[in-house]
Structure formats: C-alpha cells, structure tokens
C-alpha cells in the first residue's frame, strides 16, 4: 500500500518534470524519458502533463485576456440590469410595504383614537347624567324645602292669626268680664248701701269700686 502512495508521488513528480520538459531543452527531456520508464502508466499522463503545461492555470497569461474580457461583459450587464431593473423594483416593493405597514398602523392608531373618544364620550355622558341627577335631586330638595317652608310659614301665620284672635277674644272677654264685674260690683255696692240705709251716691260708688278693682285687672 505504501508503494501505491509512493507511485502516486512519482506520478506527480512526473507531471512536474514534464512541465520543465516542455519548457527546457531536448536533452533534459531525454533524461526525463528514463524517469518515465519507472512509471507504469505513461501514456495518459504525459498527454495530461503537456496539456497542464502552465502548472497553475491561474498564472497562465494566455487566459487573462479571455477571463477579463468576459468578466467585464458580465459585470457591465449585471450592473445595468441591477441598477435599471432589479434594485429600483425591490426598493419600491420594500417602500410600498413600508407604506402599507405605516398606513395600517396609522389606521389602527386612528381606530384606537376613535375608541378612546367613544370611551371619553361615554364617560362624559355618564358624569353628565350623574350631575343632572344630582341637580334634579337638589332642585327637588329645594322645592320640597320651599313647600315645606311655605307650609310651615302658612301654619305659623294661621297659628299666629288664631292666637291673635283668641287673644282678642280673651281680651274682649276679659274686658266684658271687667265691665261686668264692675257693674255687678257697683250694683252690689249700690244695693248694699241702699239696704244699709244710706243713700247711694253713684259717683262715690264708682270711685270705690274702681279703687278696689284696680288691683284685679
């Protein structure tokens, strides 16, 4: 197995020497022919080796012109296509999408605002209703109070009137009572005086009765 690897290396060296053989004089090529005898497979690889003359194709100046020319063509076409067609299109698609997203977001924002407005309106209506109710309650209360006050005032007035009337009547009664009492007292006094035999002087009797009744009324 080791011999396999060794021979492989020889194949490589074979190609290597062939590179030189191609570049150098015939004498070296002849010398090389002796080497080639060592390798069992000569045919294919000698062809490959001559084809492979440059060793590294990357350094073969023969290819440069071709590669560079076609690269320039490719780059020019690619640049043209990208800058004229592809990139503006992708850019517009992306900005369109951005626009749609922003629009949707704005709409959502609007809806949110609307919802907020509705909520505010509802709150306002609620507080208005509350205030109204409060107002009605106070108004009602005031009305009732007023009525109550009126009623109380009326009742007070009536009571006062009645009291005054009663007072008047009591006064009148008292007056008449006093008059009655005086006349009764005078009459009694006059009778008494007459019975006792005296002559009743009206003026004196009046004065005496008045003097006695002064303290009573």
């Amino acid at each position: 197995m080791f011999s396999l690897l060794q021979q492989a290396v020889e194949v490589v060296s074979d190609t290597g020497t062939h590179v030189e053989a191609a570049n150098q004089e015939a004498a070296i090529a002849a010398e090389h022919a002796a080497d080639a005898d060592l390798v069992i497979v000569a045919g294919d690889h000698t062809v490959a080796a001559t084809e492979n003359a440059a060793g590294m194709p990357q350094l073969n100046p023969e290819y440069f012109g071709n590669l560079i020319f076609w690269l320039l063509v490719t780059l020019a076409v690619l640049y043209w296509v990208l800058s004229k067609v592809a990139l503006p299109r992708i850019g517009s698609v992306i900005s369109d999408r951005q626009g749609v997203i922003t629009g949707d977001l704005m709409q959502a924002e609007e809806y949110k605002k609307k919802a907020k407005d509705a909520e505010a309106a509802y709150d306002k209506a609620l507080s208005d209703a509350r205030a109204e109710a409060g107002k009605i309650v106070t108004a009602q209360k005031a009305d009732i109070q007023k009525e109550l006050d009126e009623a109380i005032a009326k009742a007070d007035a009536e009571i006062a009137a009645r009291t005054a009337e009663s007072e008047k009547r009591i006064g009148a009664i008292r007056e008449s009572a006093a008059v009655d009492a005086r006349s009764v007292a005078r009459d009694v006094t006059a009778e008494l005086v007459r019975r006792f035999g005296g002559t009743a002087d009206d003026a004196a009797i009046d004065a005496a009765v008045d003097a006695r009744l002064k303290g009573a009324f």
Partner: peptide
C-alpha cells in the same frame, strides 16, 4: 497566502 506559496512551488 502561505498555501498559495506552496501551490506556486509545486506547480508554477
């Protein structure tokens, strides 16, 4: 770069 040097030595 070192790989490149190796390749150059081998083939070029």
């Amino acid at each position: 770069f070192s790989f490149l040097v190796a390749l150059l030595l081998l083939f070029a």
